[in-house]
């Protein structure tokens, strides 16, 4: 009864969020006295995949059929279900993402497995199999017992603090039979921003709101983000006004982030915005209005003009 971790490959490397899921899965395997196996789908070198061992996995199953080169929800779900059967796995772990969620849901349907998403810490196995998950967009938590034989857990970023072991995992080629019907959905085009840091994966996020007065002023936000190695984000009004693309909008109806550091510039902090960022470890708010509600949710605050403060912070970061 092993643990399987579904991972994602981006540009030939395992995604950071996937490595966190590997560590989480390996810890669950340890608790259950079993081993953790990684499923990696797509093109990556053996050396890259062996790195999963550094995060606690003993084995990597590598499915590298040419038809699996781009994320295909139904085909990936069939491959994952085959891996679960082959390894006789009881628990499937993955990091929440637009592909992971979709694949996990279909696998839960195939296996009649309980599926719990937004899990924020390691499970409690002292009486049954219990997980803690974030609900109401981060405004509360629920402790949930999973009763089914097979269990699927989608973890939120920072659900576990990773410790690298320096070990290496064995990589096996995995070639389950693929069904033609799984390829009926055609991806006809992909449009990806050139920025290298993905918002849900970022450890630091610099976010800005209407206080920036217009899209032409985003340079000072990007400068600070670049200096910090951070992703940029925005509030809903900014995305609604088309100042920034929708995939940068964080909040109740946008992306939910839980980075180590969230810096909000010129965002007042409406409750719907806070819902998307309240799981961040440290929140910094910079706003010229001392009454901005965001200060109540912040760890550090500066009352001041973003056009003055941001370039000075960028300079201070570069001087570190």
């Amino acid at each position: 009864m092993s643990v399987i971790i579904f991972t994602e490959i981006d540009n030939g490397a395992l995604k950071k969020s996937s490595l966190e899921a590997v560590y989480y899965g390996a810890e669950v395997a340890k608790m259950k006295g079993t081993t953790a196996t990684v499923l990696a789908i797509g093109e990556a070198s053996e050396a890259e995949l062996a790195k999963a061992g550094n995060f606690g996995a003993t084995k990597v199953l590598h499915a590298n059929d040419a038809r699996l080169a781009t994320g295909n929800i139904q085909a990936y779900a069939d491959v994952l279900a085959s891996a679960v059967t082959q390894e006789n796995a009881e628990v499937v772990i993955l990091a929440k993402s637009s592909l992971g969620d979709a694949v996990a849901a279909r696998v839960a349907g195939k296996l009649k497995a309980a599926i719990v998403s937004n899990v924020t810490e390691l499970p409690d196995l002292s009486g049954g199999f219990k997980v803690t998950r974030s609900i109401y967009t981060g405004k509360a938590f629920a402790t949930v017992e999973m009763k089914s034989d097979k269990k699927i857990i989608a973890i939120k970023k920072n659900a576990v603090s990773v410790v690298e072991s320096g070990a290496s995992a064995g990589v096996e080629v995995f070639t389950p039979a693929l069904k033609d019907a799984d390829f009926a959905v055609k991806v006809t085009g992909t449009h990806k921003a050139s920025s290298t840091i993905s918002l849900p994966e970022a450890d630091i996020v610099v976010s800005a709101g209407r206080g920036l007065k217009g899209p032409e002023n985003w340079g000072i936000v990007e400068d600070l983000a670049n200096a910090l190695g951070a992703a940029t984000a925005c509030s809903k009004p900014v995305s609604d006004l088309d100042w920034r693309p929708h995939h940068e909008h964080v909040g109740q109806t946008g992306i939910k982030v839980s980075p180590n550091l969230y810096i909000a510039c010129g965002i007042s902090g409406a409750i719907q915005h806070l819902a998307g960022v309240n799981s961040s470890k440290v929140i910094v708010v910079i706003n010229k209005d001392p009454e901005a509600p965001f200060f109540k949710a912040a760890d550090y605050g500066i009352v001041g003009d973003v056009f003055d403060i941001l370039p000075r912070l960028t300079k201070a970061v570069k001087a570190l």
């Binding site: 994320g71 055609k186 991806v187 006809t188 992909t190 449009h191 993905s198 849900p200 693309p245 995939h247």
Partner: peptide, 14 residues
């Protein structure tokens, strides 16, 4: 059109 991390993809299906 489906949103993905950092962008979007165009999709056709029956």
């Amino acid at each position: 059109t489906r949103e993905i991390e950092g962008g979007k993809e165009d999709i056709e299906a029956s």
